[in-house]
Design a binder for these strands. Structure first.
Ligand code: NAD
Ligand code: NAD
Lengths: 231, 231
DNA sequence: AGGCATTCGTGCGCGCGTTCACAAAGTCCG
DNA sequence: CGGACTTTGTGAACGCGCGCACGAATGCCT
């Protein structure tokens, strides 16, 4: 087992696919599969086999020619590369419709992202309990972030309050934000932001739907980051 | 006003940005802004000005040199290009935690994606009412899709049932799917699939968080499809 | 009317990511 | 033990999207 890796830079596109491989590999491990080929993994992930090999090669040469990859070891390596060897507690800002669904969703904790806290600005929301987590006032954000060592914040407020939520998060020391509000957030340098915008997704689908109507049936290009696909 | 457009192919990356421009332009229109420059729009969208101009040029030459773009007209053009001149009713499969949050969210209807129906396989869920929509049994899916002319389906079932849900949707005639379950869906040719995987998003953030720890503070590349950003 | 400032539209080069194709490496079996 | 077979790892070609840079068009001011 190698002691220290050289930490080469991994392309963004690859980083976005590693979690998909990881999920599939964990499933395979649960089904007692011990080894998998790039072809096999590619099929399950819905991507090209060469892409799989190149992606995995960024982690090092952990395959065995003529055989494939040892599932358990690959799981370990990807986990390590993605920084999933320890938990990343998250704090959710906004305990509305969506915030409650997120907080109540067990999948996050299972995957290493326990909900360290849920905060809201509305006094009537504060104090209520969602899936065992008590909603606290947004003024407690700093304290939650510091005592629970939170690096990742989730913005689930109305669009008008999203920038304020992001400001409070970064001020509290959070360095990564997952934004569900349909607004472009301005954040200081060095802060990572990813957004999930359902309306945008639907509108992209709408574009291809409309196109399908206009011209005769036509193949839809698969989208970047492995986000879209058509088979 | 041009009568018919030549229907050139629009790059995927551009299609993914048009909804963002659209949202911003609608906001500007609401604030009585009549005209906007590519620079102004670029700033609000957090992208390069040349990119904005190139993106908009796919719609046609609708800008005025020395002035900018007429907001209202641009809204109309983007709407038209994205196929948002009429509503696209959607059907939600899975009335759980997430499905209820989605159905209860008014933002979809406002943006032209009214919820035509919510279906579930669990008899105890069937009949309950979410935000005015009655949950129906999944066996009614075909009927809903046909009578309401649904083209877009949303999968909000547990991962184990997601493929089944997708199969039922395509069999019912749906040609676009938005998938929230963390699985790779297999669908027939010509069906568009986009996925929203929160665990993947968090794991990508985790990667950069971990990296930030290892090496000294470092700029995070903005991600594809305009999904990530850092400022 | 003319000149100046502004902003669009786009040709072009560059860098990144995808894919092909193949040699190297290792397995498996007779 | 050797040869056939399998599968990896990666060099190289390709294509796409990004951003610069600049000509062209238009408005505005004197
Ligand atoms: N619910 C969905 O299915 C869904 C789907 C797509 C997008 N979204 C987006 O997610 C966001 C949340 O949606 P929702 O349906 O949960 O809205 P919601 O109105 O139900 O909840 C928003 C919550 O944020 C709280 N809040 C407001 N300002 C705040 C502030 N400054 N700081 C902290 N908390 C604050 C409110 O008190 C409220 O509890 C919105 O931006 C929405 O556009 C939601
Ligand atoms: N809740 C969240 O915040 C969240 C976050 C990320 C991802 N997800 C994903 O979204 C999906 C739904 O999550 P959830 O929390 O709503 O789960 P849930 O268990 O609360 O709801 C799932 C619903 O789907 C129904 N269902 C099961 N099999 C079905 C079938 N074959 N056809 C139709 N309906 C069926 C169930 O009866 C249930 O009502 C899951 O795949 C989950 O991983 C949810």
């Amino acid at each position: 087992m190698p002691v220290e890796r050289p930490r080469r830079r991994i392309p963004e596109a690859t980083v976005a696919r590693l979690p998909v491989y990881l999920r599939i590999l964990i499933e395979q491990a649960n089904e007692e599969v011990e080894s998998i080929s790039s072809d096999g993994l590619a099929e399950l992930a819905g991507v090209n086999a060469a892409k799989v090999r190149k992606d995995l090669s960024y982690l090092g040469s952990y395959g065995t020619r003529g055989v494939g990859y040892e599932v358990a070891f690959l799981v370990y390596q990807i986990r390590r590369e993605l920084g999933l060897t320890h938990d990343w507690p998250v704090v959710i800002v906004g305990a509305g419709n969506l915030g409650q669904a997120l907080a109540g969703y067990g999948g996050f904790g299972q995957r290493g992202f326990p909900v360290a806290g849920v905060v809201d600005i509305d006094p009537s929301k504060v104090g209520s309990v969602i899936a065992g987590v008590r909603v606290r006032h947004i003024d407690d954000l700093d304290q939650i972030v510091q005592t629970r060592h939170v690096n990742i914040g989730v913005v689930a407020t109305p669009p008008s309050a999203a920038q304020d939520a992001a400001d409070r998060l970064t001020r509290a020391g959070v360095t990564s934000i997952l934004n569900f509000a349909p607004v472009v957030l301005a954040v200081p340098n060095g802060i990572s932001v990813r957004k999930v915008d359902l309306a945008v997704e639907l509108q992209i689908l709408s574009y291809y739907e409309q196109r399908r109507m206009g011209v005769g049936l036509q193949a839809i290009g698969s989208s970047d980051s492995g986000r879209g696909a058509s088979a």
